[in-house]
Amino acid sequence: MSKAAALPTRLAKVAYIGAVLAMCITPFLLVFAISFGEKIEGAAWVWGFQFDNYKRFFVGADYPNSISFLYLKFLWYSLYYAMIASILAVATCFPFVWLMTRLSRRAQTVWLVFFLASLTLSEVFVVMGWDILLSNRSGLPALFKETGLTDLLKETGWFDVLRSWGLASPRNVRFKPTEFATILTMTYLVWPYAVILLYPPLSKINNEIIEAARTMGAGPVTVVRTVVLPMVRTPIVGTVLLLFVFLLGAYVTIAVFAAPEKHTLSISVYEAVRGATLNAPFGSAQAIILLIAAAVVLVFSRMALERGEK
């Protein structure tokens, strides 16, 4: 009986794993295959096998008449924003989560529910909120103007410094489009994830260990630095990397808050695939390169982490 029953079970298992693999791999393979396709000027694209799209990524379409590193620059900004914002999110979140785990069970639950609920805010909503907060007539610049801070800045000469940093127009301070607004919003976007990812490892740290350190004379900051941090180093790096990967795909934030010279590959991929040129092959090639770049970052971080643990 056992043999008769085992066969369907095994078949079901194989079918299930096959289906999962197909669902995971098919879209990826499709993108990979399209990336070798050929763009027809003035129309769409056709299947093909040539490396022009990859070549264009590194030197531009007009090469060798002219050379352009436009897409490498977009790649750099993809990695740059995602890395800075994920590190900032974890750095600012860590003290909060640490203090939160020292609260009563009930208070912890309330905070966790709050953060879980805040995950329902999509990128679009978050961006809309910050957009209003940073706008000239409804947000911070209006506050600067009304409180006389703008005039004060102008009198003290700081206004010209802000202008040279691109944080002011001749009329008032301005926060968009700026790197500041982009990174701020991206950090905000992943903050709840940082809380939820850091909570489990930090809440497992026993109060007795802390008390032991305290009785040996260590201050609270020393305890966190020398006892808590080393215990959760791996989860912290893991959280940074997960948020990093998540932020590589940020689209709305970049479109609204970053100046075009500091746009990322996610914008460029979308414009190629869904924009007026209908150039899915070039979009796919960019996506594949972004994927490879992300994988390289993850592998190197992992190697660095392992070396650090030895």
Binding site: E41, A61, S68, L70, K73, E261, N279
Partner: peptide, 18 residues
Amino acid sequence: LDDETFITETWDRMVAKG
């Protein structure tokens, strides 16, 4: 249309200072 890729990329490079 005929110069789609060229005109798009030349313009995009200008906008993105790339």
